[in-house]
Design a binder for these strands. Structure first.
Lengths: 190, 190
DNA sequence: AAAATAATGTGATGTAGGTCACATCAAAAT
DNA sequence: ATTTTGATGTGACCTACATCACATTATTTT
């Protein structure tokens, strides 16, 4: 698990054993059960979470109680309420587990400490953020330019593993379609 | 103009005169006329652009020729085709001027050089990227959870200056509504 | 200042996708 | 193993919003 995390970082920067141990010492492992919440609206948010195993979702409920999914996170992904974490305001989203999961917690404080002490890791986090920015832009373009069935196909292309783990009604809530419509898109196989 | 740019950076980090001059020496000013293109699909993209004055838009055309706006950029904003820039692939968006504009160009190469030579500026760009990430997440939530008229109100709240510069049909293309629907939302004043 | 071009408003009509209702099937929980 | 709870499918109907068409009013361009 530790080596898996190291590989994740070493996709972007290379590390000595001492550097990795130093970095790793700032993280706290946490085991979570299905349905367990990490964040609820109103909470103060101190951590970013790196997913070692399992699957989580970040979402909001609208005024009719309908769920809208901002983000999934599987193995290898980072997730939290970034608005709350970065701006120091209360959470506006729910973050919970779709299945039993393990995460590594990193407080914002420790992240900033790491970044100021180790230039390399600041490079890592900058690259991660840049990559995330591009991914979000692509999702916005997908929402603006594509129909429900096109968006479904795009998501399937991009993250096929997701469809093994996540019920289709959650896929629908991520794509911005009703579960009924998503089901019909399938049967009609457009 | 130069001091305006310096202020922009000093909102996040503080600089000595030498440091600022060093940073500024990596930027190239460029004047642009209304309708002028900075990027078209297929182009290779080497620069990020910081807007000194004017207003630009980044957009795609869908298969029916309809425009969908990914991003506006007014004074103080950064804009480019980030996917193309970061991944080193060809552009997939148009970037052009809504009015006469002035920008500062920074090549990716120079940005990376700056970041490796001056830890402070890497901090700056990391914070910028984090902020941008949060803004995009909020836009996705807005697209998922809100109706056309709610999205209009949210945008008006967030960037009132935008409505002085940008014709409503472009606002519509940003919100993901037809210009006719946007016009009707107004008259009905929901 | 005139001509050309772009922006906006508004009616009539079309449609993708939403909502509601209920049936079936799968998976947890006791 | 049985009960409870959640996931999926499908029909009937509804509604935001899109599209098309044309009139009106700004804003550029020459």
């Amino acid at each position: 698990m530790k080596s898996f995390f190291r590989q994740h970082i070493e996709k972007i920067i290379s590390l000595t054993d001492e550097e990795f141990d130093f970095i790793y010492s700032h993280f706290t492992p946490k085991k979570l059960r299905k349905h367990q919440f990490l964040i609820e609206p109103g909470d103060s948010v101190v951590n970013d979470y790196f997913v070692l195993s399992g699957c989580l979702k970040a979402y909001q409920l609208d005024k009719n109680g309908k769920m809208h999914i901002l983000q999934f996170a599987m193995q290898d992904w980072w997730i939290t309420d970034y608005q709350a974490l970065y701006k120091g305001i209360n959470a506006t989203i729910f973050l919970d587990c779709i299945e039993d999961s393990e995460v590594l917690c990193l407080s914002l404080h420790d992240r900033e400490k790491l970044c100021s002490e180790l230039h390399k890791i600041e490079f890592f986090f900058r690259k991660k953020s840049n990559g995330g920015y591009v991914a979000l832009q692509q999702r916005i373009l997908s929402l603006l330019t594509s129909s429900a069935s096109e968006r479904y196909e795009q998501l399937l292309q991009l993250y096929p593993q997701l469809f093994q783990k996540v019920p289709k009604q959650l896929i629908a809530a991520y794509l911005g379609v009703s579960r009924e419509t998503l089901s019909r898109l399938h049967s009609q196989a457009k």
